[in-house]
Design a protein around this nucleic acid. Structure first.
Lengths: 330, 330
DNA sequence: CTGAAAGCGCTAACAA
DNA sequence: TTGTTAGCGCTTTCAG
């Protein structure tokens, strides 16, 4: 661990600590001569300012946090998350801000995590997987931790928000399937307390005019399989199913096939999120991509602005596109 | 931002800051009576110790870092990474240690990142994607940042190491294919400067006795496709191909099929890493799983031990298992 | 068992 | 343009 401090650099450069500090931050005019002297000394001693000391003095951690309140298991099978993080990082990299990732289980742990974050570990947070009437929003508001909501939120909130239109691709898919002659179109949603799941299922119900063929899944392969079995056992089974993610869609596809159905001839299938392997399945899976990196970038920018005191703002990232592939071909 | 400090709590409890500190850390005997008084005061004021102040005083950031030096693009398509992180987090959660994730591009940025991390941001680092003769190992050693190498490393090093046997599943696959009558078995590796890619290709060459059918890919779908095309155009093409990840395998599978080949009848195919969708492809893809969460847990534990001063240790996580599926059926 | 006081390494008023 | 001097909020000797 480098034991050299700002005092060593100051001594080496023949100036005071304040001068060294300002030479690096540019927070006050410094003569070109001393600046180069300081930089040379810092370079020579291989010194970089201590983050912890700086954090304490400036009340800025130079870090933002993403808290994930899901089973670690689920993270592993989620294609959205890593791509989203990649987008966030691409923005943070420009400002030497660190990303703190915290996985917690249980509300107590989550509250404690936010408290600790707010208290010197992070300058702001990104909220994913929003629930309807999410307790975290008022909680973070009270904590005073700048936050950006990723995904639509159903309540008014003092935070910035990165929205995406989940409804449009659902409507578009339904129209597409109807054109192909389908009249019995089912929807396997994610948990309906997730705002995005709800948005999709609402669009579905509105467009179809009924929730007869709506079923609530939980994004796992098991639920995709079981619900599909249930739908196919109906007296008048669907001829098309829209799943709210690719994992469930693929599990449904496998099940249908194991019952002797041919995809898409006997059953058209579409997913959501466009996993990187979905285009390579056979039949290739129709799915909805939503540019997670773009959403990550937007969220990170809004958060940085919020930390600097900008007023909250809603940004709509219009990025959903339906990829029509063989699994819904007519 | 909670403005309450340890002084407020001390006042509330009618003790001094030192007592509050020790009541929470247990670093010195405290009477049960004052302890409960302190805890009550802390609870009442909703106080948690400031991480930045604590970090400065203890010279402990209570955070560890993972630096990824890859294109953000690649992260998004990697099934290993999120599952590994999930394992790391499950260990960190127990000790209130934070995980700092940093994506960098270019060696300069990477060096700077490590320097900053070592200087007050993190107590240790996890090194992934090791290269042969990796510059980061001596660099981190010189920085004095406790580190754990994830994956075999080919040089002696002062760091702990979490190894996995990459060679055994390759040998096992080859034996399996030979039993099924294959004599022309190709291998599409990852970049050979990655230690794990090299380990796999070495095992392949040793087992096969020739590198005639060895090709170096880069883990992308494009390289899987192109190399497969090249192999199939050979005068005496392979009847089986082992790919070093599932993405390349699936791209290869698609290409072979587009040339009218039937999988596995005309060409047997296996992947590596066992993406969560691979079992659902059709034909289902034979692949090698390696329990990334277990490796994440092991790495996190070794790092925590190393931070506390334990001497380096190599832990072999024996977790690779070949999942034989339809793509290699005889 | 508890209090008082001295830092940890940096930044930011306030002076000069 | 630069130096001086207090802190930031905690931990940790050193006394009591």
């Amino acid at each position: 661990m480098s034991r050299t401090t700002i005092a060593d650099v100051a001594r080496e450069a023949g100036v005071t600590k304040a001068t060294v500090s300002h030479a690096l931050s540019g927070n006050r005019p410094i003569s070109e001569e001393t600046r180069t002297k300081v930089l040379a000394a810092a370079e020579k001693l291989n010194w970089v300012p201590s983050q912890s000391a700086r954090a304490l003095a400036t009340r800025r951690a130079n870090a933002i946090a993403v808290v994930l309140a899901r089973d670690p298991e689920v993270i592993a099978n989620d294609s959205f998350f890593p791509a989203f993080i990649a987008g966030v990082e691409s923005v943070l990299a420009e400002t030497e801000t660190a990303l703190i990732l915290q996985v917690v289980v249980g509300r107590d742990a989550e509250e404690r995590a936010y408290r600790t974050l707010a208290h010197g570990r992070a300058d702001g947070a990104l909220l994913l997987d929003l629930r309807t009437d999410d307790w975290r929003v008022p909680f973070l508001e009270q904590l005073g931790l700048p936050t950006v909501l990723v995904g639509a939120y159903d309540q008014p909130s003092p935070f910035s928000c990165v929205r995406t239109d989940d409804a449009r691709p659902i409507r578009e898919l339904i129209a597409h399937l109807r054109d192909a002659g389908h009249t019995r179109i089912a929807h396997v949603s994610g948990p309906l307390d997730y705002v995005h799941s709800k948005a999709r299922s609402d669009a579905y119900v509105e467009e179809i005019g009924s929730d007869e063929l709506l079923r609530e899944g939980d994004f796992t392969a098991a639920s995709g399989r079981d619900i599909t079995a249930e739908l196919l056992a109906l007296p008048d089974p669907p001829t098309a199913v829209l799943y709210s993610n690719d994992t469930m869609a693929i599990a449904g596809l496998s099940l249908a096939r194991s019952q002797g159905l041919s995809i898409p001839r006997d059953l058209a299938i579409s997913g959501f999120d466009d996993d990187h392997l979905s285009a390579h399945l056979s039949p290739a899976l129709t799915s909805v991509s939503s540019d997670p990196p773009a959403r990550g970038r937007a969220a990170a920018r809004l958060l940085q602005a919020g930390i600097l005191g900008a007023s909250p703002q809603t940004e709509v990232v219009d990025c959903t596109v339906v990829h029509y592939r063989a699994s819904t071909a007519s």
